[in-house]
Design a protein around this nucleic acid. Sequence first.
DNA 1: TAGGTTTATTACCATACATCAATTTCTACC
DNA 2: GGTAGAAATTGATGTATGGTAATAAACCTA
Lengths: 194, 194
Amino acid sequence: MSLNNSILSEIFKDVSFSQKEINLIESNIEKLSLKKGSTLLKAEEIVNNQYYVYEGCLRTYFIDKSGKEHTLQFAINDWWISDYTAFFTTTKAIMNIETIQDATLYKISRKSMEDLFCKIPQLETFSRKKMERAFVSFQKRILASLTQSAKERYVSFIHTYPNIEKNIKNYHIASYLGITTESLSRIRKELTNN
Amino acid sequence: MSLNNSILSEIFKDVSFSQKEINLIESNIEKLSLKKGSTLLKAEEIVNNQYYVYEGCLRTYFIDKSGKEHTLQFAINDWWISDYTAFFTTTKAIMNIETIQDATLYKISRKSMEDLFCKIPQLETFSRKKMERAFVSFQKRILASLTQSAKERYVSFIHTYPNIEKNIKNYHIASYLGITTESLSRIRKELTNN
DNA sequence: TAGGTTTATTACCATACATCAATTTCTACC
DNA sequence: GGTAGAAATTGATGTATGGTAATAAACCTA
């Protein structure tokens, strides 16, 4: 309700709305403030929402049978986050999401999205393009895991996310790269020695 | 032109069209027959098209600096294939696509798609949902590479693609799983021994 | 600033998978 | 149906990364 046009145009970049559309979107979106270390989503929960990250830092992670955590995604300003597998297929979450830094999010439900797609077709276009970008970045990551060593992946990680690195623990990075914190530590040592 | 409604409803599942729409789509889509071993796309080429696989089997692969091939994706009946990174971002291909079995494809250009999205909004919905499914399957693959051993990934591969396995070489599977053909061979031996 | 807790590093050894080099098995074609 | 070339297997050895445990550094918080 108190959302203004400038925030909406930040969330739905490159889309412009009429006043009526703005009101409609506002009534379907909810602002959320979370302290560092909060849990946004737990495995086994029903996933009805996705979240736009206005500020802060979150991560999506999977806990395997042996209890080890594997980070699928980090999200900072201007990213969207959810357990998209569960969100899209209407199944229970297998992922967990937590805040790594204090965060301000905008929450929108699947039902709202579908409703808005019908009423505001540019939103569906926006959403399709968002999926395309996400798809591309996942494709790059798969390729990296097929072709690069742990060291190469770490180097390209810190280049791709120079700002993230300040906020997050090394063991978060390690669990994203698919290696142990010990291995990451050795890689970092090697890199500073050269 | 000679495409009938039943083929279109196979390609664009769950979407129904008026006769006028059918004609419009037909004029934007092109049937393609390729012999096994043909090249559909080479790295460095401009990517203006994506392809629906009506029958046959293809693979998208990347060649790294050392000349090694890495298979990103297989495509069989009812899958879509392209170098989507290049297709979506209008950059040159980094992937190669070849037919592993004789194939019948339907080709559609980016320009045509965009045009059709405007004229037939259900197609945009279809395309968004297609991206969502692709995104989910890539997400699963990333998770698998983070959490599973080569053996586990192979076992889940042959469960997920029981039909593909008959058509393709082991070294294609190995390059998809991110291991060598020798390692795959040892894994297969272990599995038959147990 | 001290003291406790979390995070990162280091050392030593284990393991999964890679590499190289034969060898065997499969497959396509004359 | 026999034979050449491609594909798969096997053995011996190398290397990257993992696991465990101990230590050190960073970080809270009182």
